[in-house]
Design a protein around this nucleic acid. Structure first.
Length: 259
DNA sequence: ATGGCAAATTGAATTTGA
């Protein structure tokens, strides 16, 4: 089974890119974040026509929104509302016996201080609640995919020094996301495959004049596997080329081929 | 707390992203 995750930054605006990716990469499952639409406006038919007729979608107006799109039957669709907000940041479904959690973790605003910036507090609380959830519900035959909005390792950013106080790479976030991984018994499938040293990004800001030239990226998007699936990681790919497409998302898709 | 941008909303300006 081949699983993909992609922060699409508006599924309606980028339906062409979604269809192109499905055609070129032929995943079995595509998990989207930041679909930015209510379910009634979700481009379900176009995606079903491309072969992905099993869909679990959970969106709202303007912001957030997640979806699991599959060629294979989907079972046991459900979701959690963390930090007491029904803001469409999580959906989970079982496909071929594998439980897939799709998460869009809060970005956290600009100032890395929970007292000056409520969004940063929300982000930290969200991580704490997800950590707690998976500590109590040990993942087995499960994946956690999505935009976690944290680049935990030195090799996940273009400059660990210059991003030290930038939300997504502060010490507290890095510590807490690794803590979430360890306490849930998750393995970072991308690092299992590529190792800890290789510099990897999944997001490049729209603000750079030329994203390839400046290459100031961060690895904010993740695929984690429950420890029992460690031996099933066959291949991981980060599809950087999509960042160069017409009207791109600022995030690129990542795929995991599971044995 | 900035920015060389982008998207969605509501109606040219604001909020959010990271």
């Amino acid at each position: 089974m081949k699983i993909a995750t992609w922060n699409i930054n508006s599924v309606r605006l980028r339906i062409t890119q979604v269809l192109r990716f499905l055609k070129e990469q032929q995943p079995d499952v595509l998990c989207l974040q930041e679909t930015k639409t209510q379910d009634v406006y979700f481009p379900a038919k176009e995606i079903a026509d491309a072969g992905f007729s099993y869909q679990a979608i959970r969106g709202e107006k303007s912001y957030n929104g997640v979806a699991i799109l599959s060629r294979l039957p989907i079972e046991n669709v459900s979701y959690q509302d963390w930090v007491g907000k029904a803001d469409c940041r999580h959906i989970v479904a079982q496909i071929s016996g594998v439980k897939i959690h799709n998460i869009y973790l809060p970005a956290g605003g600009d100032i890395p201080d929970r007292f000056e910036n409520l969004k940063f507090g929300h982000k930290l609380d969200f991580i704490a609640e997800v950590t707690d959830y998976f500590e109590k519900n040990t993942p087995i035959k499960a994946l956690l995919v999505g935009d976690l909005n944290v680049a935990p390792l030195v090799s996940d950013v273009w400059s660990t020094k210059q991003l030290k106080n930038v939300v997504s790479h502060t010490d507290i976030e890095r510590k807490k996301i690794i803590d979430m991984q360890k306490k849930g018994g998750w393995l970072d499938a991308v690092r299992e495959f590529f190792g800890p040293e290789q510099v990897l990004y999944s997001w490049w800001s729209y603000r750079a004049r030329n994203y390839i030239e400046s290459d100031r990226g961060r690895r904010l998007d993740h695929i984690w596997v429950s420890i029992d699936l460690a031996s099933k990681i066959e291949k991981v790919e980060i599809h950087n080329n999509t960042r160069g497409w017409e009207k791109p998302s600022d995030h690129v898709p990542i795929t995991l081929q599971l044995l």
